[in-house]
Nucleic acid binder design. Sequence first.
DNA 1: CTAATTTCTTAATCTACATTAAGACATTCG
DNA 2: CGAATGTCTTAATGTAGATTAAGAAATTAG
Lengths: 184, 184
Amino acid sequence: MNNNTEYTPIDWANLGTLKFVSKGTLLQEEGMKSTKSFYVKKGLLRSYTIDDNGKIHIFMFAPEAWLVSDVASYINSKPTDFFVEAIEDSEIMEFEMTSISVDFSHSEDGKIHPEISKLLRRIAVLQKRVIMLMSATARERYEHFLETYPQLINRVPLKMVASYLGITPEALSSIRRKMRNKEI
Amino acid sequence: MNNNTEYTPIDWANLGTLKFVSKGTLLQEEGMKSTKSFYVKKGLLRSYTIDDNGKIHIFMFAPEAWLVSDVASYINSKPTDFFVEAIEDSEIMEFEMTSISVDFSHSEDGKIHPEISKLLRRIAVLQKRVIMLMSATARERYEHFLETYPQLINRVPLKMVASYLGITPEALSSIRRKMRNKEI
DNA sequence: CTAATTTCTTAATCTACATTAAGACATTCG
DNA sequence: CGAATGTCTTAATGTAGATTAAGAAATTAG
């Protein structure tokens, strides 16, 4: 048990190879053996899969200070299912997941390392998303998205928001119309 | 960077307070401030939420050697949304999440600590679940469940499987009938 | 053991969203 | 700049699964 409350956070912004990528650049494609991760210094990435019918499903958006990595591919040593694409001109730090070294411990006052906290937050977000995908209406999920990521609204096309929510653009348009008309 | 390949895994089975609980016991209720986690030595737990319409949504099952904890509640210091219930007579180790101390680091040969590996596997599973909830049919999700957790089939009532899959029991019955009839 | 309760299945009807189609407008490309 | 392409919206039609209802069988409770 490490009782030292002073952690040295990972300096994500200087961990690997700095890259400037323009909008539309594919940083990762499905089928690749992917041990790389991407930290967003500036810009916006998305991670997505394409299903058997050719439909795109956005798994996550990653604005500044976010980290994109395919944990499943890394932990199972399998080719990734995910594409990673820049949806704005971006500045990213690309690094190997093996570069990471963190002490997962609690201080006396209950603090945990910020990077482990980041990992646990990832789990918390995914937990919520699973439950909402099972129990909430598409509208409720959109409303939750608006509350949770207000800064993304002007940066992400509605079509992609729909893809992230697991609904069609038409459904999202319909929802937005109802919200404008103050329908229940 | 710790280059020592010999980790001391957490001895979950002896970490906190041993409890014998009978089937139906509620270990945790929504609204509780929950910092506890439960390690299953023997038996089976489920973690679930109840939505505004009173409908139960099972977030996870936890058979032997599994760990149940509400990361979201812990990380956000908010009351939990989740119930935790024993669905078999069970033997569990109950402990505080602050008890955990692990070194998240990689050895020279790329190994990571088994507990961090466990955490990353949790993320991988949730990743997959999110994508499938967005892109797969209910049948595909059931088939994936059968492949992934074959040992649960005889221990968990079909009604609960349906709840875990985010579908109704009627839908699951319909799917099973089609599979029996070899329909596409 | 019997009565009560739960589980599972079936089928008819309903519904939230998907699919298809297309127009208006905005953005990108050459 | 004009043409091509993409985005967003709208509406009609279709569909996978939800809801409602109920019977048969299994399990639980007293």
